[in-house]
Amino acid sequence: METKRLSRPSPSFRLRSSSLNAVRLRRVFDLFDHNGDGEITVEELGLALDRLGLGADPTDLRFTVETYIREGRKGLAFEDFEKLHSALGDALFGPVGEEGEDGDGEMEEAFKVFDEDGDGFISEAELQAVLAKLGLVEGRSMACVHEMICSVDRNHDGRVDFNEFKGMMRSISLKSA
């Protein structure tokens, strides 16, 4: 199997808004923790990366991840995962500076992950495709996907535009603060 490598890291890897980044990182951790035991093993991380089409060389992945797994554990606890994410961000983009907390550029990048056809909207089909790629149960039910869209669709057009997405992300940020 051929391993895909990203030619240029996505600027959305680390959002400038620390509260949005913490919420997003926790969600990523929970998605990668396939068996829900509070730890991400190297195997679970490899599986998640493969599902996202970002396969990594298993030896390189094991070497990188195992340095962050605390003694006596089988995988990364959330705090370990945060440290790994921070170290990768620093290596790829340099240390976190004192940039503003605007975050619209990063939010646009996050929006583009869901807006697969680039039309400026997240449709039910696009949301379902992303959820399915992540192996989430919610992606199997169009009714569940429809409910998710309706919960943030303020103008009731059956799809999520960037402003609706941004409002949803900011409300998540405020709830977690």
Rank of each mutant, 00 (worst) to 15 (best):
S10T: 03
P11G: 03
S12E: 11
F13P: 03
F13I: 05
R14N: 07
R14I: 12
L15C: 02
R16F: 08
R16A: 03
S17A: 05
S17Q: 02
S17W: 01
S18K: 08
S18I: 09
S19M: 00
S19K: 05
S19L: 03
L20D: 03
L20M: 04
N21I: 00
N21Q: 11
R24K: 15
R24T: 08
R24V: 07
L25T: 14
L25V: 10
R26A: 13
R26H: 14
R26G: 09
V28R: 07
F29E: 06
D30T: 09
L31D: 13
F32S: 01
F32M: 10
N35D: 15
N35W: 12
G36F: 08
G36Y: 03
G36M: 08
G36T: 09
D37L: 04
D37C: 06
G38L: 09
G38E: 06
G38P: 01
E39Y: 11
E39Q: 13
E39C: 09
E39S: 10
E39P: 08
E39W: 07
I40V: 12
T41G: 11
E44I: 10
E44P: 12
L45Y: 04
G46S: 14
G46N: 12
G46K: 08
L47I: 06
A48Y: 15
A48M: 12
A48K: 06
A48G: 15
L49W: 10
L49P: 09
D50N: 15
D50V: 14
D50P: 03
L52D: 05
L52S: 04
L52N: 05
L52K: 03
L52V: 04
G53N: 01
G53T: 02
G53E: 03
G53H: 01
L54E: 10
G55H: 10
T59G: 13
L61S: 02
R62D: 10
R62S: 13
R62N: 06
F63E: 13
F63A: 14
T64G: 06
T67A: 12
R70T: 12
E71K: 15
E71T: 15
E71C: 15
R73P: 01
R73T: 00
K74W: 08
A77Y: 07
F78R: 04
F78Y: 13
E79R: 12
E79M: 08
E79K: 13
D80H: 07
E82M: 04
E82L: 04
E82G: 00
K83A: 00
K83H: 02
L84N: 05
H85F: 04
S86V: 07
S86M: 09
S86E: 11
A87S: 08
L88N: 07
L88I: 11
G89D: 08
G89R: 10
A91Q: 11
A91D: 09
A91I: 04
A91N: 11
A91F: 03
L92S: 10
L92H: 07
L92Q: 09
F93M: 11
F93H: 09
F93I: 10
G94I: 00
P95Y: 02
P95C: 01
V96A: 14
V96S: 14
G97V: 00
E98Q: 07
E98Y: 04
G100Y: 01
E101L: 14
D102V: 06
D102N: 14
G103P: 03
D104F: 01
D104H: 05
E106L: 08
E106P: 03
E106R: 06
M107A: 11
M107S: 05
E108S: 07
E108P: 01
E108F: 07
E108L: 04
E108C: 01
